[in-house]
Simulated scan of single mutants.
Amino acid sequence: MKSNNKKHESQITCNKSKNIKSESKKEAKKVIIQSVGYPFNFPLMEAHNLEISDKKLFEHYSKEQWLGCDVKKGSYLFDQKILPDYGFKVLEAFPDASIIGENTSIILKTEENIVNDIKSISTDITLNDIIGQEKAKNKCKIVMKYLENPENFGEWAPKNILFYGIPGTGKTMLAKSLANELNVPLYLIKATSLIGDHVGDGARQIHDLFEMANKTSPSVIFIDEIDAIALHRKFQSIRGDVSEIVNALLTEMDGINDHEGVVTIAATNNPEQLDYAIRSRFEDEFEFVMPSFEERVIMIEKFISTMPFEVEVSSKKLAEMAKGMSGRDIKEKLLKSALHRALYEDKEKIELKHFEDGLNSYKSKNESNKHMFA
């Protein structure tokens, strides 16, 4: 009778990995769960609003009964000890479709942390998708080697990297491809989102961000538009008081808390405007440059291959027209603009005049912006 109860308990609690295919699954680094209550609504069975007084103790308690369980986003786990059959929904598992192991971090999502939820993002972008930027891609090799074997580097780890260059040249794409190639979590955050309504909000988000990256290391943190919070002191008044956010970031970047297996990448279009206290923390800087003629040809051919209409203009002609444009502007301001103009005119082909009109509109807007900020 005892063995039957044990078998029943195992089946209700979770699906244990017993077959060969399941045993090959990776151990989850992080599992975020949310209490959802009981599956049935009996009069004597009320839902509980769980309050966790000791997070580490709850994690130990959970791991003890769910060790070896399959977890994936949207699946459920059931308690069989203090609150029998009480349900928890898996909100996120990294990697997805993995198993709970000895080193898995189990986090119960509560109303307290629901506002500042930090999630890793997934992408299918590869290094081959990035055309050009060969110097930056080559310099990324050391970062990749570190993330593959963090324990081999010790104090020589490449921890803080600055990506800088003209907008639309592939800074965010390279960070995404780096994480995707190595199958590690990427935590992408815009620095502007750190400037909250209340004092201390941004600093807390910084610490939470690095704590989450540590729990799921090896991992990558990507802070976009870092100049929004790390402007030179003479520009600080433009953005308001962000000293607490900057101090929190400096604390984490200085490695006062050991972040083995975590690489912080920040991106900016204006490196010369960064405060020296922040910029000096970056061990290396990767410059992103405008595409060459040959690179523009390759980009345009790749973009055109996915367009719904035939293009009557050669890729080399378009590459000449796109001189001085970033990869993003080529796609959005030249090609997409021409496509939409052809659609307006009910054309079945994209003609030269459509590209010329789009290019003229792009140039006139750029000129007006220059005069506005001159």
Rank of each mutant, 00 (worst) to 15 (best):
S122Q: 15
S122V: 13
T123A: 14
D124I: 08
D124N: 15
I125E: 12
T126C: 07
T126P: 05
T126D: 07
L127K: 05
L127I: 09
L127G: 00
N128G: 11
D129V: 05
I130N: 02
I130V: 14
I131D: 06
G132W: 01
G132T: 02
G132H: 01
Q133E: 07
E134Y: 00
E134N: 06
E134R: 00
K135R: 06
K135Y: 07
A136W: 06
A136G: 05
A136F: 05
N138F: 04
N138I: 07
N138H: 05
K139D: 11
K139C: 09
K139S: 12
C140Q: 06
C140P: 03
C140Y: 04
K141G: 00
I142E: 13
V143M: 12
M144W: 00
M144C: 08
L147V: 09
N149G: 01
P150F: 14
P150H: 15
E151L: 05
N152W: 12
F153D: 03
F153N: 08
G154A: 04
G154E: 03
G154L: 02
E155T: 12
E155M: 10
E155K: 14
E155F: 11
E155R: 13
A157L: 03
A157N: 07
A157Q: 11
A157H: 05
P158L: 10
P158R: 13
P158Q: 12
